[in-house]
């Protein structure tokens, strides 16, 4: 059950926790976009990834997100790693940034380049994962939906059901822990009846069915009950309402905004230069006077 708790809100009281959720979401998207810029030279991409990683680690330390949890969730990514590697090995490319062959399988040349490309993608995915983890484990689910609603307010002009979507989202988020507890409970109940969730494909399959069906049944029951309860209380999605928790933009939000914004601006500038120059910009050459690859 441990990997299911990935990114669950952890109630610390750090600076990152106190930031405005709207700000956090925006900055996270900025950061993600930055991560996905690809430069012409390998060395530059690597250096930039190193910079992102350092920033990420600093933020993770600041927000007290557990590294153990992140690594645990990485354990389940091995299948994807293998898949990516296979794709990069078997898709024939003529341009290899890193030339030497690694080894040959039945006269089929496997290049180091394929490994590098796969590794780079994984690295970026890991960074994305840790970013979302920082967001979800430092922001209360409710605050997150308020932030989403705030971002969707302009869409209300074209009759986009922003409030309804925010409500649906908040209900969904609200029930994740409940459903997790339920899963846990049903699993234990079926284990008491001898269901085996860890050995043998056939047994596992049967055990999982014995978990899924009651889970669906109870989720549907619950949603019906909730809908009835809302209706009884006269819930009207179109009614004008005030908020109990107001989102406020503080000075530290401005600070975070400026900081990440500057980093992002730097990345963009670098990227634009990189795209305009013919061979790509070479940081190693500029700073250390060593030729990059």
């Amino acid at each position: 059950m441990d990997n299911l708790t990935f990114g669950r809100y952890s109630p610390y009281n750090t600076v990152v926790h106190k930031l405005d959720p709207r700000n956090k979401i925006f900055l996270m998207i900025l950061f993600m976009v930055g991560i996905f810029f690809q430069f012409k030279l390998w060395s530059v991409s690597l250096i930039m990834s190193g910079v992102y990683l350092i920033i990420l680690i600093i933020i993770m330390l600041l927000s007290r997100v557990s590294f153990v949890q992140l690594f645990k969730s990485l354990g389940s990514m091995w299948l994807m790693v293998v898949f990516l590697l296979l794709i990069y090995i078997f898709i024939p490319t003529t341009t290899h940034k890193i030339e030497p062959e690694a080894f040959k399988i039945f006269n089929y040349a496997v290049y180091w380049d394929s490994f590098c490309r796969a590794g780079y993608i994984i690295l970026r995915l890991v960074m994305m994962l840790s970013l979302t983890m920082i967001l979800t484990s430092t922001t209360k689910p409710m605050d997150m939906t308020y932030a989403f609603e705030w971002y969707m307010t302009p869409l209300k002009l074209i009759r986009f059901p922003a409030h309804e979507i925010a409500m649906t989202l908040s209900i969904a988020l609200r029930f994740i822990p409940t459903l997790l507890d339920e899963t846990n409970r049903i699993m234990k109940a079926q284990e008491s009846r001898g269901a085996d969730f860890s050995h043998g494909i056939g047994r596992r399959f049967r055990a999982i069915i014995s978990l899924m069906i009651p889970l669906f049944v109870s989720a549907i029951d619950r949603s019906e009950e909730l809908a009835n309860a809302m209706e009884v209380r006269g819930y009207d999605p179109r009614a004008k309402r005030t908020k109990y928790r107001l989102l406020r933009f503080h000075f530290k939000d401005l600070l975070a905004f400026v900081l990440i914004g500057c980093i992002f601006a730097g990345i963009i500038t670098l990227f634009v230069f990189d795209q305009q120059s013919t061979g790509g910009i070479d940081i190693l050459q500029v700073i250390f006077n060593v030729k990059g690859f």
């Binding site: 409970r185 049903i186 234990k188 109940a189 079926q190 284990e191 008491s192 009846r193 001898g194 085996d196 069915i209 014995s210 899924m212 069906i213 009651p214 049944v217 109870s218």
Partner: peptide, 19 residues
């Protein structure tokens, strides 16, 4: 496994485990 056969545990609201 033998322990679970020896000790039967009926959870609260066991009707939710029918499938």
């Amino acid at each position: 496994k033998q322990l679970r056969k020896h000790v039967g545990l009926v959870f609260q609201f066991p009707e939710y485990q029918l499938f």
